[in-house]
Design a binder for these strands. Structure first.
Ligand SMILES: [Mn+2]
Ligand SMILES: [Mn+2]
Ligand SMILES: [Mn+2]
Ligand SMILES: [Mn+2]
Lengths: 217, 217
DNA sequence: TTAATAATTTAGGCAAATCTAAAAATATGT
DNA sequence: ACATATTTTTAGATTTGCCTAAATTATTAA
């Protein structure tokens, strides 16, 4: 598998969560920051390699082999992110870019020893689950802040948007994984939400509310 | 700099130690396991980028920028080798291949934090010096076993050949970095050398003697 | 000092991954 | 139902890094 093929497989895997019945060429091209014609070419190549099935004009669906391969790349990505934060003093908004490169280094020994060195972590710095060697995820139920209930106390356990901008925004408002928040008010006008955060209160916009994951505590 | 360009720069850097007056196309092609025509193409491209000077039919010579870049890649390579051995339980014969990939990940923060995490090592698992952030090497005088003197005691401090085969041979004969040996006899017939190694004696061939570096102790 | 030999470069092509532009298929709205 | 809009595919180029074969330049040896 080439670097480009690995990246396409990962993108298709992520898009399949959203589009259950086949990933469209346009969606894939957008995710990959390429043009639709490039996506078509690659989909045909991956179909040739039995990594996915493709019905022309109908979208692509990963095969078991393709899904397993995508999960393998995701495992590497998330383990490296943990390494960067835990061992090399990276902050959670700096790791993604470097992990995009590290994830393509193909050595089972490297990945499995790294896993052990890190103590077999199950979540990455953004709260995303890390599949084990066999590809199994440990899932935790999570709800998005936008759907939180007034009066309920939650713990922050993940983010959807992992852009540096969003993560730095959270940092500057003292929100991180593990932070405890209570929903005080949901404003119907603009869907902003007022939270209790330690001793203080904070109002977050709908964009924030849609990108922060919580669990009841 | 692309992956291929980085690898060519590194190869030219290494060959310049041997061929002081310009690296020939053929030598470069052999080092890179490509054909001479490919080496010519790349040399022209690197000359275009001011990484080296190339006089047609006369060989290539790195510019200061090219040499600095090559040293940077070598620094990454050797730091990752240390990481793999010290932290991930790799043996010295397994690290090179993986480091060949890790060395191309281009993040100053990554490399410098890794350096700090490892305690600023000055030598890699094969006894090769690791340049610092500014590109300065700490050199230690070393002599090759083939030129060792009978009756003298030495410490093993490096290898020339870093192939898995050679390193495994050394492992199986209990020779590693730090091992103390005494030269007992040099056989003129085949240039083999008899060594005292702890309580036992061992005879090593000329091939071994030319690839093991020592310093007087 | 030539002629053979060796090294190097040039010419022309190929595969991967991308692009633009055009054609074909599908979806949508009245 | 049918014209229009959208999506997807195809056709034809481009760039990078590599190849083989042929031409060119340098070296060597008689
Ligand atoms: Mn990431
Ligand atoms: Mn992540
Ligand atoms: Mn190495
Ligand atoms: Mn080494």
């Amino acid at each position: 598998m080439t670097l480009a093929e690995e990246n396409y497989l990962k993108a298709i895997y992520h898009l399949e969560q959203e589009f259950k019945n086949g990933v469209s060429t346009n969606a894939l091209a957008e995710e990959m920051n390429t043009k639709a014609s490039s996506a078509t070419d690659m989909v045909k190549k991956l179909a040739e390699k039995n990594m996915l099935t493709h019905i022309p004009y109908q979208g692509a669906t990963l095969s078991d082999a393709g899904r397993a391969y995508a999960v393998k790349v995701i495992r590497r990505h998330r383990l490296w992110e943990v390494f960067l934060v835990e061992k090399l003093n990276f902050s959670w908004d700096e790791v993604h870019e470097v992990a995009e490169h590290l994830e393509h280094i193909n050595s089972d020994k490297l990945v499995d020893e790294l896993d052990a060195f890190l103590g077999f972590p199950t979540y990455d710095p953004h709260g995303d689950p890390i599949p084990d060697k066999e590809g199994n995820f440990t899932y935790i139920e999570k709800i998005v802040l936008a759907k939180g209930e007034v009066g309920t106390t939650y713990k922050c356990i993940g983010v959807d948007d992992t852009s540096s901008e969003f993560l730095k925004y959270l940092d500057s408002n003292n929100i991180g994984l593990g932070t405890i928040v209570k929903v005080l008010h949901k404003e119907p006008f603009d869907n902003s939400i007022k939270l209790a955060l330690g001793d203080s209160e904070i109002v977050v916009s709908q964009s924030v509310a849609k990108n922060l994951y919580l669990k009841k505590v």
